[in-house]
Nucleic acid binder design. Sequence first.
DNA 1: CGACCTACGTA
DNA 2: CGTACGTAGGTCGT
Length: 583
Amino acid sequence: MTDKASGAPLVALVVGPQGAYAVGPGIDEAWALAEVGRRFVDASARLGPRWVVWSSAAALRGVVGAGIDVARTWDLAETHRIIHGGWAATPGHVVAGCRGLDEADVPRPRAQRLHGFDGDLFDVAEGGDETLLTAGGHLRADALLRATDAPRLRELAVLALECQTSQLEALGRLGGEHVARLERTVWSESAAAVLCLELERDGLPVDRLAAEDLIAASAGPRARDEGDAARIRVERDRAVLRHAPGRERLDLRNPAQVRELLASVGVDVPNTRAWVLEPYRLTHPLVDALLRWRKDERIATTYGYRWLDEHVGVDDRLRGAWTACDGAAGRMTAQNGLHNLPAPLRPAICAAPGHVFVRADLGQIEPRVLAVVSADRAFAEATRSDDLYAPVAAKLGADRPTAKIAVLAAMYGQRSGAAGEALKDLERAYPVAMGLLDRAYDDGVARRAVRTWGGRLIRFGAAPPQLGEGAEPDAPAGSPERSAGTDGSRGRYARNAIIQGSAAELFKAWAATVRHAVRPLGGQIVLCLHDELLVHVPEQQAHAAVAAVEGSLTSAARTWAGTDQVRFVADTSVVRRWSEAKP
DNA sequence: CGACCTACGTA
DNA sequence: CGTACGTAGGTCGT
């Protein structure tokens, strides 16, 4: 069995709790756990395979952790998510997907282990002589954890190869003449899953002292004990409460009390959200003080000393868990603030001595993606420009701000504001692109599943899969499918998911290419932020890294889009601190 | 203790 | 100008 398009032999790797197994053309070996890294390197050099894994996290965390470069993979879990939609993708789900079995019947792991007991040992002892599959053809729950001997590991590896074959056939049925595009999606999404492990391993470089200073500016000094912390909190609150004489005991963290307080000074609002209060900033000094307090409070609670201590390692790297796709359209997610670090803290994100960041963000990615997905030749023409809105404005006979609002309104669906006339002109100027958006909207209203450009399924109406309960402790919150909501909300969701999800695919294809290109330079991708990449690289290699990042965009975009008629642009700069680059 | 709400950070 | 995500603190009910 080989990967036809790339010519690489397909080798399954299963890593269990006590050993590993690799099987494929030219290899059929049990590996001791301590030897996995070395044998992985040997087998990679000897065979140049595409490694087939149930999931990158399960099979490759140790390999990546050892600093080994993992080149080509086929991640069965990520592929399952592409083909079938949703987020649940345990080996059980993969097998069910491949065999056409009902996802709802996938065996789920036993309930929570009891406090103070090691549930794994208990389960392994009890499940020692079980078969791999149930009578119904499903993979037994926790099959990977229970695979403690070589024969069982081999069985799982062979099954993985069968699933890969089955997924490839499914891609062929789905893709027709575009099967190669879907296969490339699998490759880059699989690479993204490996990249996630690298991001977790490497972390984001932080200037700890700068971070402490920035936190101190908002949260005050480090508290020595609980009483000290309370005193500092009261001190912070006083900046607001001094504007409310007689109500110094009020709890600013309680929105109901804050709303009442605002009413007492004549500010009557339905809620106390920042955008609601913003117009009242000058009405009463209390409002301004409150909004400033909220900013500080955010840093004090979410990005304060505790955050620094818990998530920034002794090597001054900020680490969190990464996932290659969320449950909706397929963007990457990250924990511990890596994806929502407040701008005021960005000066603390600083390259290590002798290093710099190459920072690059994609410009106007979503309308450019729309040009690809819709194959609208006129709209593609507009992407030739560095600023896509300029030619659109010219074509509409409108000014640039109007053209921009019209395009955004078309893509995201506006509820308020006045894009009306320009929107009608847009429909006339780019009927193909607008037609795609209208069709996506209608699909959402009708609960019809849609697919992104790369082939990821966006589902509707299905019962939300049972996450949680130990099945997938790290599953992103929320249910991936939109079964509820109004017609309009589903329509907007579908329209957005096609654009946002396709953009995420292009981004990951770019990131995977960059990752490969900067490795020989000693570079690492240290942050992925939906349309922005931060690459950490030795100073002397900055120039080469910039070229690699930009060259990667050209090649990744051409391959992903299947055309060079749509242009993608990146704004790239070399900086010491993240904040030096204006996004 | 968890579910839910409010609020807000990022893209 | 919509969508998505992660985090924390509050309340309320068990």
